[in-house]
Nucleic acid binder design. Structure first.
Lengths: 253, 253
DNA sequence: CGCTCTCTTGAACAGAATCAAGAACGGTGG
DNA sequence: CCACCGTTCTTGATTCTGTTCAAGAGAGCG
């Protein structure tokens, strides 16, 4: 069954935007990817205490916007987001497409208010984690502290590696790198690595990759013609993974 | 007196690469920028305890390389570095030019070993901060914990904002943004915002900005002709700051 | 059902890369 | 102190990748 038909998670029946039900990290299927990764039972219980509530964001709505006061970070339970920054003249730059199991909002720690915007690409649910409480408990539970640091560091590493994409790659390599990245992340969430649904538009992909939407479209068509992938609108199937990997190994721009 | 003639800090007379003398954050002129920023006396003392030693790196030598086990982070006392990642085929991507008062090595937390390389652009001195000890003391000193998180978050925010440069800007805008960024950072360290010395080559600037070194050279010449800046080899004077800022506001690529 | 947004594809154009050559600089050793 | 070498930098000519402009097809939504 293709990914886009799967209900990511059963919807709670409540229509409230904020869901009060205690989420319980220990029973969450994402615990291996998220903040509780590697925590022993006791530490996981402490972590559970501080997850005050869940919040649902409808497609197109913001989880937080630049300038908003920073109080919480968010663990994505289901769905996906785009995180983006805006220049003074309103130009958008998408800096990532966080998905289930990933943490967003870490940008707010620096100055006490968010610098980045997080917009839902589809209906999305997050666990709200009060940050001052998280810091307090992290001070008592070294495992949790370490995991928080690991995740922040991973963010830095990911950003740095993405600079390689923006700094050195041709358009077709950027698109290939993007598809391979999505594939890997879907796979580590238990979905197919070979077939997935793009939640973002060509324009958003292009913006993220530093190329125009027409170039994204053309590149996808060309990779399709070459038999590397099969594109049907937002549905992508990876037919020849090694060809994509090979593209990245090419001498580059 | 132009910046490049100023001795950044008095050199210790010892010729050893590792300097044992206790550095004392409280008396360091960079304490307002670095890890001790905002710490009260007690917390600063605890921080001082865990700075085991200083280390000097000669121009061209590495502070750490990708793959090296992660044990410490480093606070730059004087000098400057380039941090870079390499692809499997050896392609370099420079991800930043950290300077005095900034922290490097945070990339290592994620996987217990460094992912990034840090190479000295000039003779450089750093304070070595054992990370497990830092985490331990941060657990006891909330102020320090908060400051560590702030600095990691700042790293993330800076990376995201730099993606705007790589993703949306023309070559001349990238160069202008680069110069303005350097200017601001020199200024916050007490140096002139209008006149400074580039510690990196045109090739390194181009690599960082995702353009070719010829384009960097041409752009600098053009900005010079336009009267925005005066370039004499590695010495840059900013003559018309608002013109540079105006460039950034232009509709972009 | 019609509207808007998204996507694809083509043609012309432009900005930056590449190739090339010479000048300037910095370090080394005679 | 100066000649030499390699590296860095500048500048020009040419090429090419990707952008821009344009038009039509397709999909989603009220």
């Amino acid at each position: 069954m293709p990914l886009h038909e799967l209900p990511a998670y059963p919807r709670p029946s409540s229509r409230l935007a904020v869901v009060a039900a205690p989420p319980m990290c220990s029973s969450c299927s994402l615990k291996g990817l998220c903040l509780p990764a590697g925590l022993e039972a006791g530490a996981m219980k402490r972590l559970g205490e501080l997850i005050s509530c869940r919040r649902r964001i409808r497609r197109g709505d913001s989880l937080f916007t630049a300038g908003a006061p920073f109080r919480s970070i968010y663990a994505i339970r289901s769905g996906s987001l785009k995180s983006c920054v805006y220049s003074e003249d309103g130009q958008e730059q998408i800096t990532g497409f966080p998905m289930a199991g990933e943490l967003v909002g870490l940008d707010g720690i620096a100055h006490g208010q968010h610098v980045i915007n997080a917009v839902a690409l589809e209906d999305t649910e997050v666990c709200v984690i009060g940050f001052s409480m998280l810091e307090e408990i992290a001070g008592q539970v070294p495992q949790l502290q370490r995991q928080l640091h690991r995740l922040m560091s991973r963010e830095i590493v990911g950003d740095r590696q993405f600079m390689m994409v923006l700094g050195t790659m041709r358009a077709d390599q950027r698109v290939a790198a993007f598809l391979l990245n999505l594939s890997r992340r879907f796979e580590s969430r238990g979905y197919s690595a070979a077939e997935f649904h793009l939640r973002m538009t060509r324009r958003e992909i292009g913006n993220y990759l530093g190329i125009e939407l027409e170039t994204v479209s053309r590149t996808l068509s060309r990779l399709d013609d070459a038999g590397c992938i099969a594109v049907d609108a937002k549905l992508v199937r990876i037919l020849d993974r090694s060809a994509l990997v090979g593209l990245l190994a090419e001498p580059a721009r």
